[in-house]
Design a protein around this nucleic acid. Sequence first.
DNA 1: TCCAAAAGCTTGACACTTCAAGTAACCATC
DNA 2: GATGGTTACTTGAAGTGTCAAGCTTTTGGA
Lengths: 167, 167
Amino acid sequence: MNTASADEPRWLSDEEQRTWRAFMHATTLLEDHLDRQLQRDAGMPHIYYGLLVQLVEAPGRRLRMTELAMKAKITRSRLSHAIARLEKNGWVRREDCPSDKRGQFAVLTDEGYEVLERVAPGHVTAVRQALFDRLTAEQQETLGEAMRLIAAGLQPEGAGADLPWLR
Amino acid sequence: MNTASADEPRWLSDEEQRTWRAFMHATTLLEDHLDRQLQRDAGMPHIYYGLLVQLVEAPGRRLRMTELAMKAKITRSRLSHAIARLEKNGWVRREDCPSDKRGQFAVLTDEGYEVLERVAPGHVTAVRQALFDRLTAEQQETLGEAMRLIAAGLQPEGAGADLPWLR
DNA sequence: TCCAAAAGCTTGACACTTCAAGTAACCATC
DNA sequence: GATGGTTACTTGAAGTGTCAAGCTTTTGGA
């Protein structure tokens, strides 16, 4: 680490300021935009949609709660509440894990699958219009790399390195 | 889940998928990280901190509600609730606008200024560690440009082009 | 075998956001 | 000098997120 945070922090340069503000603006505007789009078309926020996507891609369309929480980058607590809501909608159902009685699977229902099928095209379009259509291939490449670096730095140490039931 | 749907949308390529997921992961992890950091050190979420920053930079440390909402990229409603909370903390106070009786100013109090002074160093450090320290100058440059393009595309049409009381 | 510690998940209370609806003041026009 | 439309902001309820505490089951030794 550098000098100190309590002493004399390295403030952001003007250029860094501009970058940071653009980052904040773009991400909040985009998240808001996608939230509204999905709330309107699917009746759920963006993050809930992400949960369904994770499930549809998983073998058997099911995932252990902890694993789903990790893939979606949210806490277990938040996931519990979210799955409770999605269950109420009939889009996900819980199943007990036979090999570990503490464990729960979140399973995508047929109804949930249909919602996804119906809503996915509009969502991709929204993402394209907001992001990919506005950037060159090079910019996309660099953006992806930058985001991977940032995410890697924030990921809790050996996150997910060893889920016992994945061995 | 490929063919189906009304129009046959252009699905994301594998590379685009990777970029998009990295984007989502990085932004949610970062927002969570900063929220926790500020909640711990300042007792407020990141967005509230952003409001105080906007105020401290404004002439007279005050801003009309609508203008503040625009700068912070949030709805007026959200701002109303947020300012109510910050007012309860004694960090912001409301003032009537003399020239327009519907108008309200949000004003940063001395106490609010002190919070900012106390908390800013740690926040800059957090941003540096999470973002700037991990990217080359070129990556930062491209990231900033990309974010500016995305934000511009999502900005409501002539947003803020003409606030009467700014003329 | 037994038990303390950890893992997996849930719960409830409180904080924050959203949405729709509401109030009050301004303004342009007749 | 009314009046219809717009602007500025607030409110309340319902939805979602966070945090700390809880329960049950599993694990790793003693």
